[in-house]
């Protein structure tokens, strides 16, 4: 067991999975309580389009991915604020638009590029030193901002209008939150992939939601489930030679179903019928 830790790629994979598991599961609590699930899914496709453009033009794929996913939340957020479109509608448009761009950019490449597909499904065991640096820096930025504005995010998640009435810059903070979601997706892109990243954001928080009535405790439960599943995914994929992204998602989904079965909320529901 310990022998695998002597491999540098395993050390990087485990460190990356801890950071990604933590960042995704903390952001995930805001995502599910504020009903932002779809915007996250749309943003991950935009990020993938950015990656493909990066490979096509020779720029750093992750840098272009960040630009694409931030642009998506800015435009979607702007359209929503101006009352032009419902959030879900504009995200729906961007979801297909950015996927179309990704297909176009891949087509323009002429040659098959396996690395591009790595970003679609993720492979945490191939995280490079450079990737790890990006994950650590962006992850730290997201966590620091969440820590600094925690009580404000907490308030707008519960009741945006009330928060505004108390003098909290609710509109600005909601926008900041969208940006953090976009960055979180880019952080996780290489290791879990554009298609699966959303499971890592939504599922730990959804499992934690089953287990507690306290929002503060929900953050801790979500973090434990997120980090635990993420590390478990790496270990299982190493031991059984499985694709890491899929293994992680299946593991965390298993945790979710267990938490539904053992949820105290379900028990109360059954009792109140009696």
């Amino acid at each position: 067991m310990l022998e695998m830790l002597s491999y540098e790629f395993m050390q990087r994979a485990i460190l990356a999975s801890i950071v990604i598991g933590l960042v995704c599961s903390i952001i995930g609590v805001f995502v599910i309580l504020k009903n932002l699930t779809f915007i996250g899914a749309g943003t991950s496709h935009a990020a993938f389009a950015g990656v493909t453009l990066g490979y096509l033009t020779g720029f750093n794929p992750l840098a272009v991915a960040i630009v694409f996913s931030l642009l998506t939340v800015w435009i979607v957020g702007y359209l929503n604020k101006k009352g032009a479109l419902m959030l879900d509608t504009s995200v729906g448009m961007f979801y297909s638009l950015t996927m179309a761009l990704a297909v176009l950019f891949i087509g323009l490449m002429k040659v098959y590029n396996a690395e591009v597909y790595g970003y679609l499904f993720g492979s945490i065991l191939s995280v490079t030193k450079m990737d790890l640096k990006v994950i650590l820096i962006l992850g730290a930025i997201v966590l620091l901002i969440v820590y600094l504005f925690f009580k404000e995010f907490h308030f707008i998640t519960f009741d945006e209008e009330m928060a505004k009435a108390s003098g909290i810059a609710a509109g600005w903070l909601s926008f900041l939150l969208l940006n953090l979601i976009a960055i979180t997706i880019v952080v996780s892109l290489k290791s879990v992939g554009a298609i699966l990243v959303f499971a890592l954001i939504v599922t730990p928080a959804a499992a934690a939601y089953q287990l507690t009535y306290s929002m503060i405790r929900m953050f801790s439960y979500s973090a434990i489930i997120g980090v635990g599943s993420s590390v478990a995914g790496v270990l299982l994929s190493y031991w059984f030679d499985l694709p890491s992204g899929a293994t992680t998602v299946l593991f965390v989904s298993g945790v979710f179903f267990l938490s539904v079965i053992f949820s105290p909320k379900r028990r109360i529901a059954v009792n109140s019928v009696d």
């Binding site: 309580l33 009580k151 404000e152 907490h154 308030f155 519960f158 009741d159 009330m162 928060a163 108390s166 909290i168 939601y209 507690t212 009535y213 306290s214 929002m215 503060i216 405790r217 929900m218 909320k265």
Partner: peptide, 15 residues
């Protein structure tokens, strides 16, 4: 089922 306790709700008034 919304995860917020009475004390957490009141604490928001302090924010």
């Amino acid at each position: 089922n919304f995860p917020v306790t009475v004390a957490e709700t009141v604490m928001m008034g302090r924010y």
